[in-house]
Simulated scan of single mutants.
Amino acid sequence: MIAWATTALVVASLLALALASVRIVVGPTHADRIVALDIFLAAGVALAVAASLLTARTVFLDVAIGLALVGFVGTIGWARLVQKADPDDAQEDRP
C-alpha cells in the first residue's frame, strides 16, 4: 500500500513540476512565475515526504518542513518585490 501511494505521489509531483516549468516559460506575468516557483517548492516537499515513506526515515520529514518554511518566506518576499516593482498591476482600485 505504501509503495502504491509513494508511486502516485512521485508521479503527481513530476506532473506538477512539468506543468510549473511550462508556466515559468510561458507565464505572461510575474505573478504566474511566482506561483510556478511555489509549485516547485510544493513538489519538493512532496518528494521529500515520498522519500521518507520509502526509506522509513524521519530525516526527510525534517527536510520537508524546512523546505516548506523557506518556500513560504521566499514566496512572500517575491510577492512584495513584484508589488513594489509595479504597484498599479499588483493592486486593484480600492474604494
Rank of each mutant, 00 (worst) to 15 (best):
M1S: 13
I2V: 09
I2N: 11
W4V: 15
A5M: 11
T6H: 04
T6L: 10
A8L: 11
A8Q: 03
A12C: 03
A12N: 02
S13N: 06
L15R: 06
L19W: 12
R23F: 06
R23K: 13
V25H: 03
V25F: 10
G27L: 04
G27H: 05
G27P: 00
G27V: 03
A31Q: 12
A31L: 12
A31N: 10
D32G: 09
D32Y: 03
I34F: 00
A36Q: 04
L37D: 03
D38R: 06
I39R: 02
A43Y: 03
V45T: 11
A46E: 08
L47C: 14
L47G: 13
L47Y: 12
A48I: 09
L53R: 11
L54E: 15
T58I: 14
T58M: 12
T58F: 11
V59N: 12
V63T: 13
V63R: 08
G66K: 01
V70Y: 14
V73S: 09
G74S: 03
T75N: 07
T75L: 04
T75E: 06
I76Y: 13
G77A: 15
A79S: 15
L81Y: 15
K84P: 01
K84Q: 06
A85I: 04
P87I: 00
D89I: 05
A90Y: 07
Q91G: 07
D93V: 14
R94C: 05
P95M: 07
